[in-house]
Design a protein around this nucleic acid. Structure first.
Lengths: 163, 163
DNA sequence: TTGAATTGCATAGTGTGCTATCCATATCAT
DNA sequence: ATGATATGGATAGCACACTATGCAATTCAA
């Protein structure tokens, strides 16, 4: 049997590879910065604040991942946390002055890289790409939800199940 | 100015996100395994051997990344290294029996996940996706090459430059 | 043939992502 | 009001990606 597993014919491989190229292209332009804070920059660039959990959801990363990113950003004086007056567990996260400056630069770099990556694309091709990626994300998200079905929490019999 | 940085309209964000979803979908199916070894599995599944550098190039990752992956795979008894008789710096890497078994399972999972991700895609749409991702990769690769221009190695003037 | 450049690999250090847990606070039901 | 549950966050531990270096072996040029 012919076992030429052509990576170039695997949607997963291709997508992942392109994703890595995007990150590196951005980071080359950030001069000392990295790509992790970008979603935070984008979420807070307008001067607003959000909780850690909200940021994690916004960026589609898990909470510990966002916690790490925010810790690095705090270390680098890009964000500050102020206690949430309505929930003592939570803090509201906002950009510092430096953070807003970096956010501006990061946004510009992101636009540059997006434009560069899509160089030669017709507007229709761009739209098709986005639509196809969204469909992939929807399909894979559905699979994740399905796998996450919590083996029927049998802890205690209940008269009714939420769902 | 309206600063709604819609992540869903950034090619980089979307591609990266989809890439992460692919990796997680695969890893859910690998039961204890992770996705890093996949390119190695695919490259060596036919029973052949390759050097570390060749594997890194094949997988489009940097050499230290491949070195780490191979170390983990060796630790897990998935590969073995035999000295290259023609080059004492190098070793030839091949799959163990266990590695070949895992490679088979990994290939099956990859096919499942690819099929799932592209569920509902017409064949033409699949082809378009691949073509667009390839174009993005080409564009970003070109940018990487350009950035890597090594500040003109002035060490010694030469009569001619290779290029 | 010998000195310079190249190549194959290893190591150190960091960032970004994940899962699995745990604590503290809030919220909900009884 | 109290006990169970849910939620926000922290921490530990790992995988995998990168850059920057350094060493040893090979290759190339003079």
């Amino acid at each position: 049997m012919d076992v030429t597993y052509k990576r170039d014919e695997s949607a997963g491989y291709l997508t992942n590879w392109a994703g890595r190229l995007f990150v590196r292209a951005i980071e080359r332009r950030l001069a000392g910065g990295s790509a992790g804070p970008m979603p935070v920059f984008f979420a807070l660039a307008d001067g607003g604040t959000m909780s850690q959990t909200a940021l994690a959801r916004w960026a589609s990363v898990e909470q510990p991942t966002m916690a790490n990113t925010l810790n690095r950003m705090e270390r680098d004086k890009l964000i500050e946390r102020t206690p949430d007056p309505n929930d003592r567990r939570s803090a509201l996260i906002g950009l510092t002055r430096l953070g807003r400056q970096r956010a501006g630069e990061a946004l510009a770099s992101a636009q540059d890289v997006n434009a560069l990556a899509l160089e030669g694309f017709k507007p229709a091709e761009r739209d098709v790409l986005f639509a196809l990626l969204h469909r992939i994300a929807r399909n894979l998200d559905a699979d994740a939800q399905e796998s996450a079905l919590p083996a029927l929490p049998v802890s205690k019999p209940r008269t009714s199940r939420r769902s």
